[in-house]
Amino acid sequence: MHDFYLSMTGWLPEFLQTTIWIMLKIVLIMAPLMVCVAYFTFAERKLIGYMQTRIGPNRVGPKGWLQPIADALKLLMKEIIIPTKSNKYLFLIAPILSLAPALAAWAVMPFTSDLVLANIDASLLYVLALTSMGVYGVIVAGWASNSKYAFLGAMRSAAQIVAYEIAMGFALVGVLMAAGSLNLREIVLHQSGGLWEWYWLPLFPLFIVYFISGVAETNRAPFDVAEGESEIVAGFHVEYSGMAFAVFFLAEYANMILIAALTVLMFLGGWLPPIEAAPFTWLPGVFWFFAKTCVVAFFFLWFRATFPRYRYDQIMRLGWKVLIPVTLVWIVIIGLGKFYTPFGSFFS
């Protein structure tokens, strides 16, 4: 296909040819992702509706299936209000700063062993670096709004994300120790051999820590104190309206799907089928990847419907005094278990 493209566009200068080819591939990943994000919001409203014995949105289109499109149109039409005393440029840049890393991280995501946009060597680190940049959107939004509530939300979020990023990073250290690689594709290939070979089993504490930190990093319930409605109205995005608000919204849901996909890649065998035998291997790898991601993403929604919001000091205690020690201990156990005990193969 690349050859066909090259022959079609041979008259272009080289850098333009490369740029357009890269852009095409980006669109190929972004378009389905955006559809997923849109319908993830719909799934959330429907599922939480059923969990609370309601029906959820059911008016727009058949059974409410056009609801996300109607929402997007509504938000596009609305006016973006910029507060007078706000910092105008930063106010408008903030939503972009929050969405861009969530999308850029998909560049290294292996959908199957062949289907990956950029198979770079340190893709795990790349993802970690980009997810750590998402916090700037929240901080800048809080500061630029020139509003007390927004600023409080931003401060809460900054402290929370810095705390949970450490737990998250340590959980990933365990994964890369077990796999012996920083490449996401290699990490998944190391887990081949069925359900019991996936890393959720040998790295069970890290799996739990990673997912909890993921929920905290995305500012989702029960860790959503950054927008805690009861105390600070809507937190960092209290001054945002229209499309600027929608971009924050998109970023939150894109981040959730990203964390779900990363959990699947690192702990649940990525595109590998649960049993490597006939009926399961007939289905394509992308299907398994998508199905597992949906299951993990479902947990985000389930958490929101189930757990009450944490108190702020409890969030900090959980991050620093529970999750980080657990990961540190388990890293030592992996290291000792892999090299000094007869169960070495269990940990890798």
């Binding site: 670096a129 750590s132 931003a154």
Partner: peptide
């Protein structure tokens, strides 16, 4: 130098500068 590049973002952008901003903003 991809390792150094990513670690620069991870450490300085992701952690150090967030704390810096945290202080400067107040």
């Amino acid at each position: 130098a991809e390792f150094l590049a990513i670690v620069l973002v991870l450490v300085y952008v992701g952690a150090v500068m967030v704390l810096f901003l945290f202080v400067v903003m107040m």
